[in-house]
């Protein structure tokens, strides 16, 4: 009997010896990961997964492979491994951690609709009741990346009224030009939309061309040459009138892109909070 007990003890000793090897491989992969050597880290975590038949490190491996792919800019691969990590764990905190990383990958790969959809599902789920601020935070980021700064400001306001990103979002929202307003004032006075967006030369040119073709059109009608009036009116005046409206819209959109890009650049270079 004693003999069998000794054998059993020895067997467990040897099993733990084998697990130690897995632990060593995990430490090695993790070291590469912490050293930001993501390519090698992915290889070693994959090696760990391959030999980890009992899935002892399944979550850690898949999660860190996902994160390493994220840092490498391979967001599809990242989402694949993070989703796999979720399937390999029953631990709620680990699932939540991976879910948020998937949201962040979606923000980075600009599939913000998917990020918002995931966040809305999380918002309704009682499991995430202690993570509401985090949900609002990433919702705000999703809106910022999708150029919906008003909604971003609302999301950040749910966290705090003086949240740095709320103030930034509001500022961007206020700075942006109204494309509709630029179009409408250009309907009323050609060139006004360009003036509104600060493109004075373009505005003056638009106004001058419209005055010239307008004068010639009206002059033709006054001289009882209606056909000339229709031709100049439709081919020149209307063309320049429509061009002026389209130009005003285009300039407003361009200015808005510049404003949004400046804000995003600020976030990238100067913002100290958590980024996707």
């Amino acid at each position: 009997m004693k003999k069998y007990i000794y054998i059993l003890i020895l067997f467990f000793c040897s099993v733990s010896f084998s697990n130690d090897e897995l632990a060593r491989q995990y430490e090695y992969a993790d070291k590469l990961f912490n050293d930001q050597n993501y390519f090698e880290a992915i290889t070693e975590f994959k090696r760990l997964s391959f030999f980890d038949e009992k899935n002892v490190y399944a979550y850690e491996s898949n999660y860190k492979i996902g994160i390493a792919y994220k840092y490498g800019g391979f967001y599809d691969n990242s989402v694949f491994y993070l989703s796999h990590a979720i399937r390999t764990t029953e631990n709620i905190d680990e699932r939540i951690q991976a879910e948020f990383q998937i949201v962040r990958c979606n923000i980075l790969r600009k599939t913000t609709d998917r990020a918002l959809q995931l966040l809305s599902q999380m918002e309704k789920d009682s499991v995430y009741s202690n993570h509401q601020n985090e949900i609002h935070y990433w919702k705000g980021w999703s809106y910022m990346i999708s150029d919906r700064w008003d909604s971003a400001a609302e999301s950040f306001a749910n966290i705090s009224d003086d949240h740095e990103l709320k103030i930034l979002s509001e500022q961007v929202s206020n700075d942006k030009y109204s494309v509709t307003f630029a179009r409408v004032i250009s309907y009323i006075l050609p060139g006004a939309g360009q003036f509104y967006t600060g493109n004075y030369l373009s505005g003056l040119m638009s106004l001058a061309w419209n005055v010239l073709w307008g004068y010639l059109t009206i002059n033709s009608f006054i001289e009882n040459r209606a056909f000339d009036g229709v031709a100049i009116g439709s081919l020149l005046w209307l063309r320049f009138y429509r061009g002026n409206i389209q130009n005003a819209e285009k300039l407003a959109v361009q200015k808005n892109i510049e404003i949004a890009n400046t804000a995003l650049l600020y976030l990238m270079e100067n913002y100290r909070g958590e980024k996707p």
């Binding site: 054998i7 010896f17 084998s18 090897e21 897995l22 030999f51």
Partner: peptide, 17 residues
Amino acid sequence: FLFVFLSLINAQDKNGY
């Protein structure tokens, strides 16, 4: 001898990763 033998069985892939 038994310890070494069992270790080799369980850790067949270890040193061998």
